[in-house]
Design a protein around this nucleic acid. Structure first.
Lengths: 136, 136
DNA sequence: CTTGACCTTGACATGATGGGAAGGTGCACG
DNA sequence: CGTGCACCTTCCCATCATGTCAAGGTCAAG
């Protein structure tokens, strides 16, 4: 199977497949006599695994670890769970930061009349670090 | 005022100040005879404005627009509000994606016993795209 | 006049991905 | 057999905001 077909099957672009090979996330694919990469069922499984991991937001570094565990029949599920938990915490941290920013900005936005007048509490806050009413 | 002092005052690193100058986000600073950049109160305001905008998660492109509006005395607050709203929507979108990933992963994690046994629903899901109980 | 803190520019890295150029390959159709 | 098109190859560059490092110039205090 050529790289394009493998890409379509797994949902990983050819570009990324080559990239993953280059950074050593996946083993170098076999080649035809003329240099085309060829992929078998095992390779497709790995690529799908990577794609599902990416869909869940895992970083390449984390996926590297997950792949190693996946291929290790003597693995401890605790190791997998630890990686997942760390990732969950990371994501929750990001959500908290976003939530704070959204909250602040929504408050400012609510106090901005949003018409043709130049007076604007959002800019006020950005330029002074304080709101007019000082309420947040 | 030198770049280091300006950086300390505004909370923008010297590196980023130079970068912002290079990409045209801020005007090129004045220079001493020996080539040192010099910053006045107006520059400091601008830098602080940028930093507060970054703290609220605005992109450089958005800040470029906000700065233009800030310096435009004939601005309409509606324009500012539109930028803020777009940004809020972006952030909410990101939060939603994170929330979905966290939700899925927490579910998988809850079903993973997390001990020394190799059996693991997280890896199961990553490799097959399905959970054992098929419940999500 | 030396030392150390600061400044300058420039190059390179991150992380995951996309775009594009330049050139080789495979296959179907005439 | 030739032509065209879709695909493949490698290599370079771009994103976005930020950091690191290196090599060299400047300033002020001792």
């Amino acid at each position: 199977m050529n790289i394009g077909e493998a890409a379509e099957t797994t949902g990983v672009t050819p570009k990324m497949i080559r990239h993953y090979e280059q950074i050593g996330l996946i083993r170098a694919a076999g080649r035809t006599g003329s240099g085309y990469r060829i992929y078998g069922p095992k390779d497709l499984s790995t690529l799908s695994f990577i794609r599902r991991s990416r869909d869940l937001g895992f970083s390449i570094a984390q996926i590297r670890d997950l792949l190693a565990l996946w291929q290790d029949r003597a693995r401890a599920s605790g190791d997998v769970k630890r990686i997942a938990s760390a990732h969950i915490d990371e994501m929750k941290g990001k959500m908290r930061l976003l939530q704070e920013m959204v909250h602040t900005l929504e408050h400012l936005s609510a106090h901005c009349h949003g018409d043709d007048r130049p007076d604007c509490p959002i800019l006020e806050r950005l330029s002074t670090g304080r709101t007019e009413d000082g309420c947040c």
